[in-house]
Write a protein that binds this DNA or RNA. Structure first.
Lengths: 203, 203
DNA sequence: CAAAAAACTGAACGCACATACAAAAATTTA
DNA sequence: TAAATTTTTGTATGTGCGTTCAGTTTTTTG
């Protein structure tokens, strides 16, 4: 009993350490420069340890991407919980997609690599789908019952696409701060909505 | 004289063949799956030939990316030449960024890989800068002398970002046709402009 | 405090790759 | 046609990678 409990505790700890080390290596060297040796070195362990706690390098990578996505989704969730009006929720969703400390060139770049890899990696593709579904669902919670279906979809698509585009530009080095990015997306949201619709969302 | 002329002709031919072969391999296997062996095989040559006509694999890759960018920029230029009004030019620029036959999942994916690689590859970064500068300059030719500077920049940024975002989504497999993409970006352009501004651009 | 189990090490292996290069084939020249 | 030159081939070489595993250290058990 105690045996299993301890074993699990150590396993989880080492896994977490390796995933976080992988994350740091990813940020610094990109998807291509992420070698098992570097990951283990970053974690302060020997190169063979990775195979002991994971099935292989792919497993660590996958866990790392999942962690990254979770961080982003949590940033949005935190903001959403504090919002009271629909418009406030919209602001929270948009701002949450450019979190201070996460909306950085290297992270954006890493995310881009994963998007590209999604084409040939089914597990990544699945993670991406989950992520986008969540974004869509969050936006739906703002517009549902306030806008006709077709209109909601167009607006959600436009805003989601802009968020993606801003991340892409962040990856290429073009500096646009989290605040400026949020402002830009919100200005498009304002432009796309009629005055009546805006009033409805402010309530 | 004839010697050099012939030599050059053959060299150029082989280089083109290899670049196009690299392009096809890129489309099918992604940036990671692009090996010299596969490229030469696709070109119907022996694996050693690549080093004979290029300095190395990087050279072929770079030439290939440049070709891709040129195709996209030419698509825009073709449309621009036919437009008569400012608004027509805007439509041409946007539609030209989603050319039939080029706005495909695998091409978008390849382009994404290059964006990601730009972070660590100066030559790629330079190509990207040239590409974006051209887009910006094209947009400027529409709005210059019609809109105040600050407004123009905001609108150009919003539209450019949306175009990027749509390419990114194309890469992840979400199907949005060239027509739908163009329509979406144009609808945002319409929303961002006042009625008076639109009238001015129609002239 | 042994004995047993778990955690960890690091050298070794096999594999895939980019590149180099000597030899062969094809083409041009005289 | 014979020599010279260019073009092409296919193997060889070196490198870096992920993974394995026999052995070592650390921790737990009885």
């Amino acid at each position: 009993m105690t045996k299993i409990a301890f074993r699990t505790r150590i396993e989880d700890l080492r896994r977490r350490e390796l995933i976080q080390a992988a994350h740091r290596v990813f940020m610094q060297h990109g998807l291509g420069g992420m070698t098992t040796k570097r990951i283990c070195e970053e974690a302060g362990m020997s190169p063979g340890i990775l195979s002991y706690y994971f099935k292989g390098k792919e497993d660590v990578l996958f866990a790392m991407v999942r962690l990254n996505n979770r961080l982003l989704m949590e940033a949005v969730a935190t903001g959403l919980a504090q919002a009271t009006t629909r418009w406030g929720r919209l602001e929270a969703i948009i701002a949450g997609n450019f979190p201070e400390g996460l909306f950085e060139t290297n992270i954006a770049n890493a995310w881009l690599s994963v998007c590209a890899a999604s084409a040939t990696n089914q597990r990544y593709a699945r993670l991406q789908r989950i992520f986008y579904a969540r974004l869509q669902s969050n936006l739906a919670s703002v517009f549902r019952d306030a806008l006709p279906d077709a209109r909601f979809k167009q607006i959600a698509l436009a805003l989601g696409t802009m968020i993606d585009g801003l991340w892409l530009r962040r990856a290429t080095g073009e500096a646009l701060s989290p605040q400026d990015s949020t402002t830009l997306v919100l200005s498009v949201a304002v432009a796309l909505l009629t005055e009546a619709e805006r009033a409805q969302l402010a309530a």
